[in-house]
Every structure is written in C-alpha cells, then in structure tokens.
Design a binder for these strands. Structure first.
Lengths: 235, 235
DNA sequence: ACTTGAACCTCCCGCAACGGGAGGTCCTAC
DNA sequence: GTAGGACCTCCCGTTGCGGGAGGTTCAAGT
C-alpha cells in the first residue's frame, strides 16, 4: 500500500502543505497514519477524501458545507441546490454592482463622481429599494446626456436662486417665481411625478434640512428651500 | 451646529454602532470631537465623510480602497476602473461555477454526483485549464444524454473486460481485441482526438496506476489497463 | 559514520470587516 | 435618586488559510 507524505500529496493535488495541515487541524482530511517520529502518512483512503474535498471546494462550498456534504451522501443534493441558489443570487448582485459602476464611469467627470455618489448614498436612506430602481431605470430611459442635462439645469437653477437671495430679491418677484416653477418641473422629471417618490424626497428634505445641506457641500442651511417655498406659494 | 451621537448616526446611516467604532479605530471616519466624558460627537463634516464611505463601500470597494479613494479625488477613476474589471472577472467566475453546478444537478443522480466530481477533480490535476474547458465544451456540444450514453458505454466496457480477465480469456482473443477497439473509440470521443489531451490522459494513468484506481473505488490496480494495452498491441 | 540540506513537525501571529459579549461609566427622564 | 438606556474600552471569534520561528527528522552524498 502506498502512503503519501504531506509534501508529495500537496504537489499531486495542487494544494499547499499549509492547507493540508489546516484540513488536518480541523479534522476535515486527517492523515490516518503517522510514522514513529510523527510524520503524516496519507493512505489512499485519505487521498480519495482529499480529492472529494477539493472538488466540492471548487464548486464554491465552504469547508463546513464540504464536511456536511461528505458526512451523508443524501445531503449532497440539497447542499448543491442551496449553493446554486446562493450563486445565482450572488451573480445578480455582482451584475447589479457592475452595471452601476459602469454607468457611473462613462457618465461622469472625475470631480462629479464623489458628489454624485454622496447624494445617492444620502438618498438611499430615504427611498425604498424599489423607488431607487425606479429612479435608476427612469434615468436609464432618459439617457446619459439627458440626465447630465437635468443635473446641469439644476445646478444652474440653484445658482440663480442663490444670487437672487443674495441680492435681496423678494420671493414674490416674477423672476423668482418662474425659477421656482422650473424647479418643480425639474423635480417632476426626476421623480417621474410619482407622489410616493415626491413624498420621500420631501421627507428627506425635512429631516435633513440642515444636515443634508451641509453634507452636500452647501455652506449651511441658507434658507434656499424656504425661499423656493415662498415663491411657490406666490404662484 | 448639530453634533451627532454615535447611536443617532448609526440609525440615520443604517450602519451599526459597532461599524462606526471600527471606522473610528482604523481612522477611516473619526469623530472629530468628544464630550468631556469621552462620548463621540460627529460633526457635519464627519457625517459627510461617513456617507462618502458608505457610497464607496456600496460599490464593493474595500476599506483600504475607500481610504485611498478619499485621500485624493484624482485616484477615484483608476480605482473605479480597477473595481469594474475585478467585478467583471468575478461575474464571469461566478457564472462559470453556476453553470457547472446547474449542469451537474440536472444530469446526475445523487449517488453519481460525488464520484463524478471526484473523477473530475483527479483529472483536473492532469489537464490544463484550457483542455478542461475544451472537454467541457465538447461535452456540452454532445449534449447531456450523449455524455450519459458515453459514460454508460464505458462502464459497460469495463465490466465486460473485467469479466474476460476473470475468465482468463487471453488478450489476443478477437472479442477482447474488439472491446479494446471500442475502448479507444470511446476515448477518442471524449478527448476529441486531441493528441495533447490524450497524452495528458495517458500521463494521468501512468502516474496514478495504483493510486487512482483505489481512489475511484476499484479494488486495486487489477491490470485492466495492461490487459487493454496487450489487446491493442494484437491489432 | 557523518554531515548537510530539504522536508517535516508544532506553535503562533496575521489578514478583512466587523459581531458580540464583558464589565464599567454616563446620561436622561421620572 | 434611581432605573435603564446609551455609551465607553478591551478582547475573543469568524473564514481559510499564509507565513515565520524554532526545533526534529529524513535521505543522499562523502
């Protein structure tokens, strides 16, 4: 009967000696025999088990799952099915991440990346996953450029409104009222007019009046929202 | 200026208090202030950083990558591109695993699962990744049933050859010679006639003459291969 | 028979990103 | 003034090994 030394077995199986030690330690693949001096001797039976372990590992099972799988052969199928489900789920998640990242990358300049992410992150606390999906798919439907256009328009609007505030233009001034109308129009394009999403956005604003504005990089809660609200009331 | 307690910030951000401790420990998001008694006070600036960290984490970056990304904004794009590449690769790997597992599951009975895996595992030590891909794609091309048919034929062949050996039929007997021809034919179907793959298979046999046969569950190296070799020589 | 270098042995620390508990202090509300 | 949260700082555990220290043993060459 051939016995294998740990080094030879490592070479044959493509695993490292350290890994074999580890499997021995946790009792997953134990060398059935030892020389008098304590060197491990793997029997063909041990080798066979090691190859089984290796195959199961290559399917992505954890060492614990491998142990269970090898303990009773009738547990193989359910474990495999669970693993298949897990892999399917994982594939979807990875794919979702990948497409988000890809979309981000080809639609943004370096500078806008972080702030965009930050806003998304903040908003994700307030929208449900479905609503976010909705927002994203709407963005996808509008197309990259259209979304960029909306963002630029919004930044432009904010700039003009702030200018008027600084100039002391009353909120009832027709120019400001017009800007507030554009503000709502833009918001409608983003939210798609969905009242639930608008409500969530509104809630987001209220709960973060000061916090959010600081986070986004505005000097502080400068009353812009109140200003717009006044202008809207004047319509 | 609003300061946030760690608990409130945890609730607002959806992270756990423990996570915030962790980020503080490793210096990723540190509470800039402390009360006299040592309680953390997060400034709006800290909160903003936390949200940035959260967004980057949601893209699958490691904490170290996040740290780098936030250190200089010009490192964002390369990091994102690397992450996209990593995700793409991961997606492919997961998908490969998934399809292998799915194929295994709907093509095998519970009992045959382990031994099939085991054989694959053993062979994977002797074939290169490309050759294995080749074998798998060939198997896919032949279709599930055809592959099953080949396997059954092979088992049948082995059974008959063993019978002849047990009966003492000489290897030069025409019936045995015919079986050896079928053996080679079957092998050619599996290997697709690729000499490199055939050589690898041959090498596999030689290096494992005794070990492999025991691993696969055969009583021992019973000389079947030699017997076939003799029969082949008689052709 | 002796030496030497490779292979082997047993601890033990380390990784990523936290989870969770112990044991103590603090804050806030009644 | 007291209860019960919320907060603090250690510290151990997780997964699947990698890698090093420090010591023993094996196999081959002289």
């Amino acid at each position: 009967m051939t016995r294998w030394s740990i080094g030879d077995l490592a070479k044959a199986s493509g695993l490292t000696v350290r890994t074999l030690y580890h499997y021995d330690e946790i009792g997953l693949v134990v060398a059935s025999e030892r020389t008098t001096s304590g060197h491990r001797r793997y029997t063909p039976e041990d080798v066979r088990r090691l190859y089984q372990v290796r195959s199961l590992r290559q399917l992505g099972l954890s060492l614990d799952e491998v142990r269970t799988a090898l303990s009773r052969s009738d547990s193989l199928r359910p474990i495999f099915e669970a693993q298949l489900a897990a892999l399917t789920k994982q594939a979807q998640q990875v794919e979702a991440l990948r497409s988000r990242l890809a979309a981000l990358l080809d639609g943004h300049t370096t500078e806008s990346l972080l702030s965009t992410l930050e806003m998304m992150s903040v908003y994700e606390s307030y929208f449900t996953a479905d609503q976010l999906d909705d927002l994203r798919s709407r963005a996808a439907a509008l197309g990259q450029e259209a979304v960029e256009g909306l963002k630029t328009s919004w930044l432009e609007l904010v700039k003009q409104l702030r200018q008027h505030m600084a100039d002391g233009t009353p909120a009832t001034d027709p120019r400001v009222v017009e800007l507030s109308r554009q503000w709502d129009e833009l918001g409608a394009k983003f939210t798609g007019g969905d009242p639930a999403i608008q409500a969530a956005a509104q809630r987001s604003w209220e709960e973060n009046k000061s916090a959010i504005s600081t986070q986004i990089g505005w000097p502080s809660d400068d009353g812009l929202v109140d200003y717009v609200n006044q202008a809207r009331a004047a319509r």
